[in-house]
C-alpha cells in the first residue's frame, strides 16, 4: 500500500516538474497563468503596472491601484494589510507581556 502511494505521489511530482516552466523564466503573458484574463500584458506589467506613455498614466498594476512607487510597501500595507495588522498585534502583545512582568507598581 505504501509503495503504491509512493509511486502515485512520485508520478505527480514528476509530471509537475516536467510541466514547470524553465527555471528563472517568468511567464511571458498573463494569459499563460490566467487564461480568462481579458487583457494581454506580461506578468511584470500586471504586478508593478504598465506605463502608458501616450496617456501618461499607469495601467493594471500596483502603482495605479495604490499610488505608491514602492511596490513592496504597497503589498505589505495594502494587499496584505491584515498581515501587518497581525504583526503589529504580536509586537503589542510582546510589549504588554514585558510591561506586566517587569513594570513596577504605580502609586
Amino acid at each position: 500500500m505504501k509503495k503504491i502511494a509512493f509511486i502515485v505521489f512520485f508520478a505527480f511530482l514528476l509530471f509537475a516538474s516536467i510541466e514547470m516552466r524553465e527555471f528563472g523564466k517568468p511567464p511571458s503573458s498573463v494569459k499563460e497563468v490566467f487564461p480568462n484574463a481579458n487583457y494581454d500584458v506580461t506578468m511584470d506589467d500586471r504586478i508593478i503596472g504598465k506605463y502608458n506613455a501616450s496617456a501618461e498614466k499607469w495601467e493594471y498594476g500596483a502603482v495605479e491601484e495604490t499610488g505608491a512607487n514602492n511596490v513592496v510597501t504597497s503589498v505589505v500595507f495594502d494587499y496584505r494589510g491584515y498581515d501587518t495588522l497581525g504583526e503589529a498585534t504580536v509586537l503589542f502583545t510582546a510589549i504588554a507581556g514585558v510591561m506586566l512582568l517587569f513594570g513596577r507598581e504605580r502609586k
Binding site: Y51, A53, E56, K57, W58, V63, E64, T66, G67, A68, N69, T73, S74, F77, D78, G81, T84
Partner: peptide, 22 residues
C-alpha cells in the same frame, strides 16, 4: 496623499493611506 506618480517621479504626496499606516 492621493497623487499617482508619473513615470520616474516619486512625489511624497502619493500612496493613499500607506504613509499614514507607515
Amino acid at each position: 496623499f492621493g497623487q499617482i506618480p508619473a513615470w520616474g517621479e516619486a512625489p511624497l504626496n502619493s500612496g493613499g493611506v500607506l504613509p499614514i499606516l507607515n
